[in-house]
């Protein structure tokens, strides 16, 4: 099996999770990367993706696990020769265990630009109420792990795939503190102990 990390930018951030799954399968076929299929009535390619990222959020750190015998180096090369605009493999590793890309990547690091200056202390550890699409209010503060000012923006670590959406979080901050052309980019997909996911292979 191959675990690989890819970036989703340059327009590709607008591709939905399900369409992305199809796109990956097509990329493998175009690239001549042989992928294992499930057994059963309707065989489907054995491709596992990390939890969905919001449509429109750029990412430099999406993960995918795929059943293939292709060695990592040639995988990366072939994939990038045939991937769509905005999708680029930035790392590939061989593994013989079926790592849980969806279940183990439970945190993510984002870089947020465009927000007006504010004190992170006012946010981290304080109730943070977000309204979901059904109009229910929810305190997501247990999923806000870290907010740090850095050059040109802020770096934050939030929960991933477990009830907090970066788009909502950032919009809330913008409503509270102001900002212009606020944008969050996912920079790292992390395990619960905040290691980059590929480190779990070692």
């Amino acid at each position: 099996m191959i675990l690989f990390r890819y970036s989703k930018t340059d327009g590709a951030e607008f591709i939905s999770h399900l369409d992305m799954l199809k796109d990956l399968s097509r990329t493998f076929r175009r690239a001549g990367i042989k992928v294992g299929y499930s057994l059963g009535f309707n065989p489907h390619p054995l491709v596992y993706m990390s939890a969905p990222i919001g449509v429109g959020v750029k990412s430099y750190s999406e993960y995918c696990l795929v059943e293939t015998d292709e060695p990592p180096d040639s995988f990366k090369e072939k994939f990038n020769a045939f991937s769509r605009k905005g999708i680029k493999c930035t790392g590939a590793w061989a593994t013989d265990k079926k790592v849980g890309v969806a279940s183990e990547i439970v945190k993510a690091e984002y870089f947020v630009t465009g927000l007006s200056d504010f004190d992170p202390e006012e946010v981290v550890g304080k109730p943070f109420i977000i309204t979901d699409r059904n109009g229910n209010e929810k305190d997501v503060s247990p999923l806000v792990y870290k907010i740090e000012k850095t050059d040109g923006g802020i770096k934050c670590v939030l929960g991933f795939g477990n009830g907090i959406r970066i788009e909502k979080f950032v919009k809330n901050l913008a409503d509270r503190y102001g900002g212009e052309n606020v944008e969050a980019v996912k920079t790292r997909g992390l395990t619960s102990d905040e290691r980059e996911f590929e480190e779990t292979l070692r």
Binding site: G11, F14, S16, D19, D23, V55, R84, K85, E167, N181
Partner: peptide, 23 residues
Amino acid sequence: LSEKLYGILKTVEKPARYIGGEY
């Protein structure tokens, strides 16, 4: 895409229909 358009795209359903760039 212009910045204005980019902003609009984030607010509509299935924005990937309006960006081109298909393989």
